[in-house]
Design a protein around this nucleic acid. Structure first.
Length: 194
DNA sequence: TTCAGGATGTACT
DNA sequence: GTACATCCTGAAC
């Protein structure tokens, strides 16, 4: 298992979003390691993208993290109750990121399940198993990620992405979810999934 | 299996 | 005051 380096993130955002599919999301938490395979991502390109919080390089306390160096975690609160995890891309000062929308549990499913549902995997209903990590808010809940982790360096040991040699069989592209307000940007095919 | 509606707090107008 | 890169529940089919 090889941790993705700074150069991986310091590239075109759409390319990074596609390349992140099949990689592992890893978190050290309370002395244990949690890991899941990334299955769905979306690209957000600040300078040109009406759907991005930092559209036209808008700089506010919330978007400040998007301007950080590539390989930084941008985590924000959405709809008052859910967190969303992004990986900052492109050179420092250019506000772009990849939203991690979905994943599959790979390691320590017991703890992920506990965080997510407050119950062990064997107690989950079929519906809960099917909807385990298939959304940005769900993923953050299972990994216990909140705004407290905003700004973490993905080159550190607490939270990072890694390549274990997995090669995706087929990558799909489509429109991004939940951004109908973004006019022409709503039609960009910047969502990628396995 | 799909659908409508509500929860909930922050950012920004 | 309004919108929001969402998720869950309960009811209908």
């Amino acid at each position: 298992m090889k941790k993705l380096d700074r150069r991986f993130y310091d590239r075109d955002t759409v390319t990074v979003a596609r390349d992140l599919l099949g990689k592992l999301l890893v978190r050290e938490w309370n002395g244990q390691q949690l890991a899941a395979r990334i299955t769905e991502t979306e690209a957000y390109v600040g300078p040109v993208d009406k759907a991005c919080h930092a559209y036209l390089n808008k700089r506010t306390p919330r978007t400040e993290t998007l301007f950080a160096q590539p390989g930084t975690a941008y985590i924000y609160l959405i709809y008052g109750m859910y967190s969303c995890l992004n990986f900052v891309t492109e050179p420092e000062g250019i506000p772009c990121a990849v939203l991690i929308r979905g994943a599959e549990a790979v390691e320590n499913e017991a703890l992920l399940s506990q965080n997510r549902f407050g119950a062990p995997p064997e107690a989950l209903t079929a519906y809960q198993r099917k909807n385990f990590l298939n959304g940005p808010g769900k993923l953050c809940k299972a990994f216990s990620l909140t705004r407290a982790e905003n700004g973490l360096d993905l080159l550190g040991d607490v939270l990072f992405a890694a390549d274990d040699g997995f090669v995706p069989s087929k990558i799909h592209a489509g429109k991004r979810i939940g951004i109908d307000y973004a006019e022409e940007a709503a039609d960009f095919l910047w969502r990628f999934y396995l």
